[in-house]
């Protein structure tokens, strides 16, 4: 399994949740994972119900079997200053650059540089080894920008190599691309069984493939159970109302007669949704990706829910 797991997805599909669950799932049996955030939203801290993450790697969870999840919110400005310090021993000159607006320029404005710094930091964590030469993290999971921007974000080479044709940033971009385009990386796309997210997933897969970036799995999130098949619903709506009413009464439901219509309406909506989901599933299958499916948690995602999703991912083969 690739050591850098990039999780993207359309807004609203729950990619931060999935990234966190994946980090937990991969941290089984004493393994250690790093969950990184690149968009400054502090979504990880909120999910794990801790205070805002600083710019340092910090343990945020223990997985079943003794594994550990560390988290890091990468800040482009800090990453650049670190970087300058590392290569140029800048010290106070770094502060001067900051004052003059150059750091702001380099991290916020100069196209692509910000992304090089963010992906660069993640790749550094992937390659980092301890004194014994072992990898410090078995896996790095990145909560990445949404599907619409993911290819551009990861494909820093095109962005930056064209602009900065020489120099350390150029070299950095090249080194990052080597990791990102290798089998060491897998880019997963989180989706729902709805038309727009599936369409966006298809577009995203095409873009990633065109850019030679390794596409991982489609992760279908918030899957709801199919409780009734359509035939039953049509059958019920056409002429079996009384029988249903009777069954409701037999089951001890009071006011059964008034409930049949709304219950059947709900069932019809359900049937319509099931049909739409079937089409979307077909569209997803056509992409020929691996897939994980995560259930909708009726109580919403809290810490316990996160562990439940992690368990589900492990059951479906994540980390094995």
């Amino acid at each position: 399994m690739s050591r850098l797991q990039v999780v993207s997805g359309k807004g609203g599909t729950g990619k931060t949740t999935v990234a966190a669950a994946l980090a937990l799932a991969l941290a089984t049996e004493g393994k250690r994972t790093l969950l990184v955030e690149v968009e400054g939203r502090q979504g990880i801290a909120q999910l794990f119900e801790t205070e805002a993450l600083p710019y340092e790697e910090r343990k945020i969870a223990v997985a079943s079997g003794g594994g550990e999840v560390f988290a890091l919110a990468i800040d482009a400005e800090r990453a650049l200053l670190d970087y300058l310090q590392m290569f140029y021993k800048l010290g106070s000159a770094g502060r001067a650059l900051k004052k003059i607006g150059a750091i702001d320029f380099a991290t916020t404005i100069a196209p692509g540089v910000r992304d090089v710094l963010l992906t660069g930091k993640a790749c550094e964590a992937v390659r980092r080894r301890d004194r014994q030469g072992r990898y410090v993290y078995d896996y790095v999971v990145m909560d990445a920008p949404p599907t619409g921007r993911i290819t551009r974000f990861l494909n820093v080479n095109d962005e930056v190599a064209g602009l900065a044709r020489i120099g350390p940033i150029h070299n950095q971009a090249q080194a990052v691309m080597r990791v990102l385009k290798s089998p060491e990386t897998a880019v997963h796309l989180v989706t729902l069984l709805e038309e727009m997210p599936v369409q966006e997933t298809a577009d995203g897969v095409a873009e990633l493939r065109a850019a030679d970036l390794p596409v991982g799995n489609a992760i279908v999130n918030m899957v709801r159970p199919h409780l009734l098949d359509e035939d039953a619903v049509h059958d019920a709506a056409n002429g079996r109302r009384a029988a249903v009413t009777d069954a409701l009464k037999a089951a001890g439901v009071t006011g059964a007669a008034g409930l049949v219509t709304p219950l059947l309406e709900q069932a019809a909506e359900h049937a319509e949704r099931v049909e739409l989901e079937r089409e979307q599933r077909k569209a997803l299958n056509a992409l020929e990706l691996g897939a994980y499916e995560l259930p909708m948690l009726s109580e919403g995602v809290d810490l316990a829910g996160l562990y439940q999703l992690a368990k589900e991912l492990r059951k479906q083969g994540a980390g094995s």
Partner: peptide, 29 residues
């Protein structure tokens, strides 16, 4: 036939229970 009616009605009820759980969660949020 009765059995399928019962199964189906049980399905309707479970579907409704799921819907009510979603409603409750949305309400809390």
């Amino acid at each position: 036939r009765t059995q399928t009616t019962q199964e189906m009605t049980a399905g309707l009820l479970r579907l409704h229970a799921e819907r009510m759980q979603v409603l409750a969660r949305e309400q809390r949020t």
